[in-house]
Design a protein around this nucleic acid. Structure first.
Lengths: 89, 89
DNA sequence: GACATATTTCGAAGATTGTCTATATGATCC
DNA sequence: GGATCATATAGACAATCTTCGAAATATGTC
């Protein structure tokens, strides 16, 4: 769970996730959307992968990153747990 | 939104929120649950307040911190946005 | 006003993070 | 096998974050 929150705490990484909403993308596709170097982008993708927010597949030379919504469901549960515990004192 | 994610990215702060689920608490109440100094705890509370995850009221010498679930509803919306955009290609 | 209690703010040390350039890996093509 | 393209890893540096002890603020009591 800590990996997840750490991964989400950076704006660049959240923007990556936003872009992946429309379907899988390669680092090469993502790169022009950011003002950072390719290694930096790669590093962000690595953290997202560690947090299991994305999954990767390889096709030839390219890697395709795709959203993994499983962990986001965990985030939903985590959040709901607070909303349901609200004490209307 | 960035303040929110940054605030949630620390385990100590998430634990504070957990403790506040059962109702409002003072820094003095929270302190024995952690292995950090009072200034550190105070700092975490300050970040949670900045992120609007908690609200504070004073009664005499004591400050009472309480969960503010409004922002957590925003987090829910943010998360749901991903789950609904899942593309079953 | 002097003192005690509850909590925060200040200033600095150490750890973690984001970024870069340079180099390495993996896959394809000739 | 060598060249090339796509991407990752290594190592270094600056910025940010967490933490602390010391000092400051706010409230209440005598």
């Amino acid at each position: 769970m800590n990996h997840l929150f750490k991964a989400l705490s950076d704006p660049t990484r959240r923007r990556i996730l936003d872009l992946l909403k429309d379907g899988e993308m390669t680092p090469g596709d993502l790169y022009p959307h950011f003002d950072i170097s390719k290694p930096s982008l790669s590093h962000h993708l690595s953290l997202l992968k560690q947090a299991e927010l994305v999954v990767v597949r390889r096709d030839g030379k390219q890697l395709f990153y795709r959203l993994n919504t499983t962990v986001l469901q965990d985030l939903m549960s985590w959040t709901l747990d607070f909303l349901s515990s609200e004490d209307p004192t």
